[in-house]
Write a protein that binds this DNA or RNA. Structure first.
Lengths: 228, 228
DNA sequence: CAACCTCCGTATCGTTGTTACATCGGACTA
DNA sequence: TAGTCCGATGTAACAACGATACGGAGGTTG
């Protein structure tokens, strides 16, 4: 072989598969079509990827890399809650821009097994919720918060991918509801000891609004309201 | 044919397919295996269902019927918000008990098309949110509320189905967060005029806790906090 | 030079979804 | 009663698919 093609055969196969998946999101694809597009016969594909699942996993890993590189370019605000917001939006945006990849990454429902690479974004998410917990911003455990965010973020994104069009109002609404739920910015149940958490946070963070003595009094009053 | 079997051939095929799907959730299934289990050759299956997708859709429709009959037996509280709660739990329970069906019903990500029968539960959901809106319980439109509930409910259920085990804390946490978000029981954004809504409500409803002047002062202070 | 490894083509296998064609029995009609 | 039609089912085959056994070309290494 004269090796006129500049790219590696394995990379060519990977890109051909990615193109086919992106071209028909949600549909199945044929290994022979991948090989034809890469100008190669099937045993070559099997040589590099073992079987179809191996190819799919390689494509998924590639998808997660794309996702992470697109995500890491935006996430830097220092505030973990704000980072969760940015991460949420980046997640939704990636899903809508790459429905084929997203389907393989998060839409595959094979009980008991989740793709390897899926752990990386989850790690980032857990890092954020852990930091938020250490900053005292959470009213639930950081694992619980991460699971909460992940499940709803995937749910909203899958929904938007299925119906094919974006709905910023829905995404933002669910996002803020979720953040409110895990930060206690919204009161979940009377009598759980967290009544007025958001008010206290805001007042304590800005004691100049009411003045220092008034702020202390406010916090004390809200505490008495919550005790009953 | 002497028709010794008590059941209809079509029903037998349907049940055989349902059994196979339930036996290997998320995995694909073979039409020949269905026919073997039903004691019938392939053209019979094609006579009744046209093609594989037709069979799958019939199974899905059957799954939705099961889901609705299991759901309708619990939903009767009169309070639309409480009905949403019950519907949420029924949804999660059905998904966990029938992961194979649930995967076909809500896990299929084929952009642009959603199964026909999926509209029935959505109609019920929209009916509940509409009633809640008419009762003045919502702070968002009833369609927005329905979409919010549906996306998150599916997201949580898919998550639980994938990881195979239930997590009542997660489900209940997301559920209450969602209900808080659409009923305004929680405050969604600082500066939207809802900061400390629950505190104010509680204080105003029980002016004897703090005393009347202190209560008025509290409400005024919270208002000033929210304006900034 | 020979052994070996990576890369890749030829040919084939078993399974799958799908369909053309034939058969058989009951229902309706003249 | 004889004829005709139609739904239900079987026989057989096809094309596409994932997967694999086998071999050969080319470079590398001992």
């Amino acid at each position: 072989m004269t090796e006129v093609e500049g790219t590696d055969t394995r990379t060519r196969l990977l890109e051909a598969a990615a193109d086919l998946i992106a071209a028909t999101p949600g549909e199945d694809f044929s290994l022979r079509a991948v090989c034809d597009a890469a100008g190669v016969k099937m045993p070559t594909l099997y040589h590099f990827f073992g079987n179809k699942q191996g190819l799919v996993e390689a494509v998924v890993e590639r998808g997660f890399d794309m996702y992470l590189s697109a995500k890491s370019s935006t996430e830097s605000s220092g505030d973990p809650i704000q980072d969760l917001r940015l991460g949420w939006d980046a997640h939704v945006a990636f899903g809508l821009e790459n429905p084929g990849f997203y389907t393989l990454m998060y839409g595959k429902v094979r009980p008991g097994y989740s793709p390897e690479a899926q752990s990386k974004p989850s790690e980032i998410l857990r890092g954020l919720t852990l930091k938020a917990e250490q900053d005292g911003r959470l009213v639930v455990g950081h694992e619980q918060a991460a699971a909460h965010v992940l499940a709803t973020n995937i749910g909203v994104t899958l929904r938007l991918v299925i119906q094919g069009k974006n709905d910023p109002e829905l995404s933002a609404g669910v996002r803020e509801g979720v953040l409110a739920a895990i930060t206690g910015t919204g009161q979940s149940e009377p009598g759980d000891g967290r009544l007025g958490h958001a008010v206290i946070e805001r007042a304590a963070a800005n004691p100049d609004i009411l003045g220092e003595t008034e702020t202390q009094l406010l916090i004390q009053w809200i505490g008495r309201l919550g005790e009953v």
